[in-house]
Simulated scan of single mutants.
Amino acid sequence: MKKLLVTLFVAGVVVFTGCTTTDPYTGEQRTARATQGALIGAAAGAVIGNVTGRRDRTKRAMIGAGIGALAGAAVGNYMDQQEAELRQQLEGTGVSVTRDGDNLILNMPGHVTFDVNRDEVKSEFYEVLNSVAIVLKKYDKTAVEVAGHTDSTGTVEHNMGLSQRRADSVARYLAGQGIQPVRIDTIGFGPHRPIADNSTVEGRALNRRVELTLIPLT
């Protein structure tokens, strides 16, 4: 991931060389805002577009660690059982469980998980993550993608960083509860994958979230 971003940065420097503006107050040259936005947008687009590759890499790492893969009809049954146990464990916690094909998505609202503009998991949320970890340890043939999301307020750069740090915090906590790190990948999407309208207070609240996508190893 770091190599990808470095490559993008270098490419951006080449493409946007000369795209500077003069500060009217200091007389200094600085990168134009449009150029900065384009560079940040390119990096964000690369993160989003590389999801499939990241998931495949995690699966290969799991197999390399000796975790056996599922096959055929066993996949659906395995995820059915895991879904049922997660729904039972998370009932009344504010965390929703959604089925997407053979994947499971746990939506953790930001106000439940983190204080405003902070990336430390709230202590009140530990019990919920403990419940998730219990199920994840039992069903160890699933990769765990931890994705951070923000609303569109603030700069893209800030939101990309915040979403990544929040995803990392959740991942560290789960690893601390005994989930094998080889199963976990983290990604920060910032404001780029909204699930609601960012022009409303309610919509922005829904967009501030951490999602765990549980992907069967096949």
Rank of each mutant, 00 (worst) to 15 (best):
L212K: 00
V75C: 03
R209D: 02
R165D: 06
V14H: 10
V210H: 02
P191C: 05
H149C: 06
Y139T: 01
V135Y: 05
T213C: 06
P181V: 01
T113K: 04
G72S: 09
V135M: 04
V10L: 09
E211H: 04
L90W: 07
A65G: 14
C19G: 07
A38K: 02
A43P: 02
K138Y: 07
T218C: 11
T98L: 11
D197M: 07
I63L: 13
I48M: 07
G154W: 09
S152Q: 15
D168G: 01
C19Y: 13
M108L: 12
A42G: 11
R87C: 08
K138M: 07
G101W: 09
T98V: 09
E28T: 12
D102H: 13
D56T: 08
I134W: 14
H149I: 06
D119E: 15
A205C: 10
T58F: 05
F189V: 04
F114C: 00
N130M: 07
E127Q: 11
Y139E: 03
R30P: 06
L70P: 02
N159D: 05
L39M: 09
Q29R: 15
M79L: 11
T17I: 11
V128I: 10
K59M: 12
I184Y: 11
T213E: 12
V144H: 01
R99S: 07
A167W: 14
V13S: 05
A84L: 14
T200I: 06
R54T: 07
E157R: 09
D115I: 13
Q89D: 13
L104Y: 02
